[in-house]
Design a protein around this nucleic acid. Structure first.
Lengths: 145, 145
DNA sequence: AAGATAAATAGAAACTATTTCTTTTTATAT
DNA sequence: ATATAAAAAGAAATAGTTTCTATTTATCTT
């Protein structure tokens, strides 16, 4: 694990650089989503010189390539990133520990029907995010900041 | 129309000021969602002195009170606002003209079941937004900027 | 109707997140 | 080993949003 990460980059026609691999490795090791600043903190522990623009650029490129997923958090309007599984799914986000788990229910067909029949419009994409407490946090009932 | 707007403010225990009424009136007149800057532009046409912080503050207060709805757009990480109908619904957002229409399909119960059964977690809230082309824009096939 | 008071606003300034720019470095193809 | 095009550093600019203080204003009380 950690070695086939370079394949992901090659598939996207991106050069395999130590920093790109490190970003993927950092996100691969987390079950939580991370903000650009958090990724940067972890990068600074690994590289003596690492610029925040480099982090932003790579997160954006990797998200565009589909290797990372951009998550929009409703409180703060910043976006955070995460990597996982490739087929269509949505996310359950624990508001306490920030863990992200995949959800496979999707109402896309019903939505498309409603849009087509009632609004006479045409669906291009949709976004669904579910917020709550994961098993562990629900058990401890502690909301961590 | 435009006169019962003050009732909305009183219900929230907010003072009825000309600027608050104007913000509500501006948003009431639009079918599109507006960003703080767009609201500010329209406010400047009505008031000789109007500060951007006033716009932000009021949009946030009104959104907290439920009179406005905060919409998160995936491209730019800014939030935009809009007022409408009170029962649970989601939004169809035209990516061309930015018009917002209400959607009543909601998979909340299926999602809750999935989260409970598979993740052993607990849903607190959810966000769903659907992007596409409205009837008019689908007809003209023109994507306006 | 007039005064008291707490909320709302202006305007300036601070802050934060993100992006842009130019130069230097580096991965990869030849 | 070299060429070249992409990636990165570091500084600086930009844009969106928030904070702060003094002033104004809506509403409550009498």
């Amino acid at each position: 694990m950690g070695e086939d990460l370079s394949v992901l980059l090659k598939n996207l026609n991106l050069k395999v650089t130590p920093k790109r691999l490190a970003i993927l490795d950092i996100l691969d090791a987390e079950m939580r989503y991370l903000g650009p600043d958090e990724v940067w903190q972890r990068m600074k522990a690994r590289f003596k010189s690492i610029g925040l623009p480099t982090v932003y650029r790579n997160l954006e490129e990797l998200a565009n390539g589909g290797v990372l997923i951009k998550i929009i958090h409703p409180d703060r309007k910043l976006y955070y990133y995460l990597c996982r599984n490739t087929d269509h799914h949505h996310h359950f986000i624990c508001i306490s520990c920030k863990k992200v788990e995949d959800l496979f229910f999707c109402g896309a067909s019903e939505i498309e029907r409603e849009v087509k029949n009632n609004l006479k419009g045409h669906v291009i994409s949709h976004l669904m995010q579910v917020y709550g407490l994961c098993e562990d946090c629900a058990a401890t009932k502690t909301i961590s900041t």
